[in-house]
Design a protein around this nucleic acid. Structure first.
Lengths: 113, 113
DNA sequence: ATGCGTTATACACGCAAAAGTATAGCGCGA
DNA sequence: TCGCGCTATACTTTTGCGTGTATAACGCAT
């Protein structure tokens, strides 16, 4: 069976998607740009979509991911909360570890050789 | 973070989904019913959807999953091939092993305790 | 030879989810 | 006090996919 590859999606759930790789990327970009709008643009997604995403995540997680600032010279901006940082660290560690294991197992069961 | 659960989807890919839990269930039901139509009905999916699914899987896998019989007393029927049996066994073993590992790791990183 | 139940396949439809559009509010700095 | 750029949110549009419908072929049994 040549060419077959393993693919998978992992997410944290609480009555719907509460966190995953997509949110991870958005939060990372908010961290560097200081703005939800800029983060969305970088990822080629609409601001409203990104906003709805963050909103639903916060609702399902039960805590805030962003500290918002509205108005001001630069119009405002957003920064990620301490809770968000903690969640991102945990998720990244979990995801990296499972990824290594999965690839190893997959090779074992479906590898060429 | 109470109530948070791990969810994930795993599939084998070759330019699109080539195998996963859905196909696994269909094939299992074909095995017991001897019919793609009956298997689809049991799962509450339309025959055309089930047929398209099997067709695309076979195309991506590069081998046949079903031995079809058209016509005859009972109208015909389908049985799964030896290749399909082998694939199902491997996938089930892989999936069960990864599932145990993932739950264990998730508890480690996100467990209450 | 006729009917029945299955496989085979094309085609049209509906609906829910995703994406875009529009509009309002905010607050600092010029 | 005016404008700019961001957050906030409702509303509209689109699109992809699941689903149903229709039609044909097949072959065994009666």
């Amino acid at each position: 069976m040549p060419g077959l590859k393993l693919k998978y999606k992992i997410w944290i759930d609480n009555g719907g998607k509460a966190f995953g790789d997509g949110p991870m990327e958005i939060l990372t970009r908010i961290e560097t740009t200081g703005s939800l709008k800029k983060a969305a643009e970088e990822m080629g997604m609409s601001y409203s979509q990104a906003w709805h995403l963050i909103k639903s995540l916060e609702k399902r997680l039960g805590f805030k991911l962003l500290e918002r600032r509205v108005g001001g010279r630069a119009g405002g901006g957003s920064r990620i909360t301490e809770d968000a940082v903690l969640l991102m660290e945990r998720f990244a560690a979990f995801r990296d570890r499972t990824d290594r294991m999965m690839q190893e197992y997959f090779e074992e069961y479906f590898g060429e050789k």
